[in-house]
Design a protein around this nucleic acid. Structure first.
Length: 211
DNA sequence: TTGTCGATTTTCT
DNA sequence: GAAAATCGACAAG
């Protein structure tokens, strides 16, 4: 029998891991600055059978990390300017993971403020997946990094949070299955001020070109 | 406070 | 060439 570690607790489908991750702590210490976030909102991506997942069309250079072992960080670049971070779950090859959507900065608030200029309130520092990644200083260089070894440290709660404190709903920014449908693949701590406001998936440039 | 739209580059078809 | 797991600015009530 293998010992139950935080890493082995991640080795199950993302939807099962989600409530374990809420309330957990993720630290990034790049040697100069150290920021810790308390995770308050996540979104599940189920792998090859999930049309909303990057893994839907199979393994590519970008999403290789998702197909690897659980307990690693999958970081991708999107919209020409944003990084988003996932915790890889399940078994190797399943490509299931959890997108870190929002959190509360509990250490290194000053550093996070410098990395994120715009927000007027501290609750906005890690509100939204790209914001959270920026506040923690995550980028493509950390894609594939071990969540339980320097420079990263993931700490799960000893026990899952009370199910009554966890809410779920449709995913954000994802069109089709799991987005506008009934699949409750987004999880958050009920009432937490750092949870992002729901924004339905939008189509880009639906207007006609003005010549 | 809510709704709408532009920015900007990687990745995949 | 088109779309993308988004954010922030701006307008209106």
């Amino acid at each position: 029998m293998e010992a139950i570690t935080d890493r082995t607790r991640l080795a199950r489908p993302a939807t099962a891991v989600a409530p374990l991750l809420l309330g957990g702590l993720l630290t990034h210490d790049d040697g100069a600055d150290r920021v810790t976030v308390r995770i308050t909102e996540v979104e599940a991506y189920l792998g090859a059978d999930d049309p909303g997942s990057h893994a839907f069309r199979g393994q590519t250079a970008r999403n290789t990390t998702m197909f690897g072992d659980p307990g690693h960080l999958y970081v991708y670049f999107t919209y020409g300017m944003h990084y988003c971070a996932n915790v890889v779950c399940g078994e190797a090859g399943q490509a299931t993971g959890l997108l870190l959507r929002a959190g509360e900065i509990v250490e290194g608030v000053g550093v996070a403020r410098e990395r994120r200029k715009s927000p007027r309130h501290d609750v906005d520092l890690a509100r939204g997946p790209a914001c959270l990644a920026q506040a923690l200083g995550l980028n493509r260089a950390l894609d594939g990094a071990d969540l339980f070894a320097a420079p990263l440290t993931l700490t799960l709660p000893a026990a899952p949070v009370d199910p009554e404190l966890v809410s779920s709903g449709p995913r954000v920014g994802v069109a089709g299955v799991g987005g506008g449908s009934d699949y409750p693949w987004r999880y958050w701590l009920t009432g937490d001020p750092t949870v992002s406001r729901y924004r339905a998936a939008q189509r880009r440039t639906p207007r006609t070109v003005n010549g």
